[in-house]
């Protein structure tokens, strides 16, 4: 789900073998880290440790992690610019996909656990409650991004068109945070933090872009 023009990385610079090995180690580490919240949640579920309303606890936790990982994915490019560590870019896509995975589980938990496939009720909720509308829209916008996340799809679309498509995250990201802001009854501090972080990370790209007079390119 890369949104910027940092150059599409197909993860395949295999000329230097030690660097490649090191990189796949980092990749495995990221996968493990991203699996931990899900494992903790499942363990708590099995242990019956999710409180009086376990369905709500599952949905909230999955949504939280989707937002957190989205923030991390969006922070990769600014971090790369600030540190000058070009290799960071190769981890962006997998973190973005993990953010999508949590968003998809969040959506699935709503459909299965919360509404139990009551599609009519889900339809009414989408129309009537703006926080559901925003959430559904954000998720729908992430679908084409996830679907085109393979290297084959990047080649097929061409880097430029792929990048343009993936700028949908500029809409999906803030919408996901707005979904959370509109969901809370009072105290919107935590969802506002996500909103500001996401907006800030997206704006950073805009600033860099305008300074460079175009999408940054090597």
């Amino acid at each position: 789900m890369a949104a910027d023009g940092g150059g599409v990385d197909l993860g395949g610079r295999r000329s230097s073998r030690p660097a490649f090995r090191w990189r796949s180690g980092v990749r495995a580490g990221i996968h493990v880290l991203c699996l931990i919240p899900l494992a903790v949640l499942m363990a708590a579920g099995i242990a019956g440790d999710l409180g009086a309303n376990p369905i709500e606890a599952v949905i909230r936790s999955l949504g939280d992690w989707a937002l957190r990982l989205l923030v991390v994915a969006l922070a990769v490019t600014p971090a790369r610019r600030l540190t000058g560590w070009a290799g960071l870019a190769s981890y962006r896509r997998m973190i973005g996909l993990w953010a999508f995975a949590y968003a998809a589980l969040h959506f699935a938990a709503y459909v299965v656990l919360d509404q139990f496939f009551d599609w009519a009720a889900i339809g009414r909720e989408i129309v009537k409650h703006k926080f559901i509308t925003a959430g559904m829209l954000a998720f729908a916008l992430l679908l084409p991004l996830a679907a085109t996340s393979t290297s084959a799809m990047i080649r097929r679309l061409g880097g430029r068109r792929w990048q343009r498509l993936h700028r949908l995250v500029y809409v999906a990201g803030p919408l996901a945070a707005i979904h959370y802001i509109w969901m809370v009854k009072a105290d919107a501090l935590q969802p506002m933090v996500y909103f500001v972080l996401i907006l800030g990370l997206l704006c950073y790209r805009g600033v860099v872009k305008s300074r460079a007079g175009g999408w940054m390119r090597k």
Partner: peptide
Amino acid sequence: VDHPRWSQDKERRIGEFLR
């Protein structure tokens, strides 16, 4: 009468799965 945030025609009884 729905609340802007929550549909009020169903409820989750704590301890039950289906609304």
